[in-house]
Design a protein around this nucleic acid. Structure first.
Lengths: 234, 234
DNA sequence: ACATATTATAATGTCGTACAAGTTGACAAT
DNA sequence: ATTGTCAACTTGTACGACATTATAATATGT
C-alpha cells in the first residue's frame, strides 16, 4: 500500500505533524478518542513503533493523554504552548519591543520596591558586565538580556521570572537586527545612549525609586522602538 | 538484575524523570552526548522500547536532539517552557494578579488606540455575555477571561495574544478562589463593582481613549489585588 | 607520503512478533 | 437485579532483526 508519508524526515515526526494537523483541523476534537495504534498502523502503513513514538511525542506536547487498556484521547484543554520568540522580520522585532514595553516598566518598578541586598549584588554584577561590553555591538546582547532578567528576578514574582526566561536573548533587538538589516550602521552614539539608559534603570532600582525605574525602562524601550521603526519598510 | 525503577508508573515515564533529573543536576550538560540506547538498556535493565519512548518524550520536550548514527545530545539552549498557570495557593493567586497588573493596563491602552470595527463587534459580544452573567459567581469566569482575551486581540500584537491564550481562564481569581478559600462569601456588592469596572474598560476602548483604558484596567486589577490580599494568611 | 575510496563499526530508525496489564462489555449463574 | 467470570480490545513492555546514517579505521592509487 502506498503510504501518504514520504521518506525524508523520520516517519514518526511526519506522523506527529499529520496527527497534529488532524487535531488542529478538528477531525479529532478535544476529548475524542483517536484511532487505536493498530488502526493507525494499517492506515498509514507504518509499524507500531512509529505510531507509538508519534503518540509519545504528542503526549509530551500535552496534546494527547493515553490510558492503558482504553486508548489515546485528545486533551480536553490543550495547553497553548507559548511559541519561542524568534523574530523573522522587522515587524516582529517591533512587536516584541512593544510586548516588552507593555510589562517591563512595571517589572522595573516592582523590582525597585522589592529588591533585596542579594538582588543588588546580582544586579550589580550583571550591570558591570553589561557596562564593560555595551560599546561592542557584537558581544553585548547576552549581558543585556541577563541584566533585564536580573531585574525580573529582583521583582520576586515567579511568573514574571518565568516569562523572562522564556523570552530568551532573542528579545534583544540586536540579536537579530544585523541579520535582517545589515546595512544599519553600528552607530556609536546610539550605543552610548543605550548605556546611559541602562544606568538610569540600574540607579533607580538601587535607590528604590519605583516611579523613576518605571519611567527609565519605559524611555529605554520607547527609544528602541523609535530607532527601529525607521527601518520598518525593509 | 534488580531494577532501580518501581512498577507503579510506566517504566518509560520513570526513565524520563530520571534522565531529566540527570540533566537538571548537570551530569549531562548542554551539548553533551548521553549514553547510547544500548548502554541505557543495560544500565536500567529495561528494553530498548522503554529507552526510546523516554528519549522520544524528552525530545518532544525540547531537552534532547537525536541524530541518526551519532547519538542523542542535550539541547544547547533548552527551551524554557512556560509552566501552566495553576495557582495552588493564595500567594500564587496574588502573584498572578500582580503579573496581569504588569501588562494588561498597557494592553488595554494599545487596544484603545488600535481596535478596528471588527474588534469592536467581537468585544461587544464578549462584553454583553460577561455583563449578563457577571452577577452569577459560578458562571462568569469564562466570559471574564474571554473579555480580557478579546482586548488582547484588539491590540493586534501576536505576542500579547499568545500570552493571553497561554494564561487561560485560570488567571481569573474566581476560577480557583472558592477552592482555596470557600469561606469567602459571594459578596453581591463586590460583583456589582467588578461589573462596573469592566464597563469602564469597555467604554474607554470603544471611545478610543488609551489613557482612560489603561487607568480603568489598572484600577480593576488593583481592586482585585486588594480584595484578595485580605485573605493571604489562609 | 598524501589524498581518495573502501570498509568496518556503531548508533539511531523501522519493523514484526509476542506477551503483560488494564479496561470494558457481554453473558451466565445466583 | 446483582454478582462473577470470561472474552475481546487497547496500551505497556520486551526481544530480535534489519535498514539507514555517520564516523573512524583501513586500504588503495598516485
Amino acid at each position: 500500500m502506498a503510504s501518504i508519508l514520504q521518506r525524508r524526515q523520520s516517519l514518526s515526526s511526519q506522523l506527529v505533524a499529520e496527527l497534529r494537523a488532524l487535531i488542529d483541523k478538528g477531525t479529532f476534537k478535544p476529548g475524542d478518542k483517536i484511532p487505536s495504534e493498530n488502526e493507525l498502523m494499517t492506515r498509514y502503513s507504518v509499524s507500531r513503533t512509529v505510531v507509538r513514538e508519534a503518540i509519545s511525542g504528542l503526549r509530551a506536547d500535552g496534546l494527547l493523554e493515553t490510558r492503558q487498556g482504553v486508548g489515546a484521547f485528545v486533551t480536553r484543554r490543550p495547553k497553548k504552548r507559548l511559541d519561542p520568540f524568534d523574530p523573522q522580520d522587522m515587524q516582529a522585532v517591533l512587536h516584541i519591543i512593544e510586548f516588552r514595553l507593555a510589562f517591563e516598566p512595571e517589572v522595573a518598578g516592582i523590582a525597585a520596591k522589592r529588591r533585596t541586598k542579594a538582588d543588588l549584588n546580582d544586579l550589580k554584577a550583571k550591570f558591570d558586565d553589561l557596562h564593560s561590553k555595551s560599546l561592542d555591538a557584537n558581544s553585548f546582547v547576552k549581558p543585556d538580556y541577563e541584566f533585564h532578567l536580573a531585574i525580573a528576578k529582583a521583582a520576586h514574582n515567579p511568573y514574571l521570572i518565568q516569562l523572562g526566561e522564556h523570552l530568551g536573548p532573542q528579545i534583544i533587538p540586536h540579536s537579530i537586527i544585523h541579520v535582517l538589516a545589515p546595512e544599519i550602521p553600528e552607530d556609536m552614539s546610539f550605543l552610548k545612549r543605550v548605556r546611559g539608559e541602562h544606568e538610569d534603570i540600574y540607579r533607580a532600582i538601587v535607590d528604590q525609586k519605583p516611579q523613576a525605574a518605571r519611567k527609565a525602562m519605559k524611555s529605554h524601550l520607547k527609544n528602541s522602538l523609535a530607532l527601529y521603526s525607521q527601518y520598518l519598510d525593509l
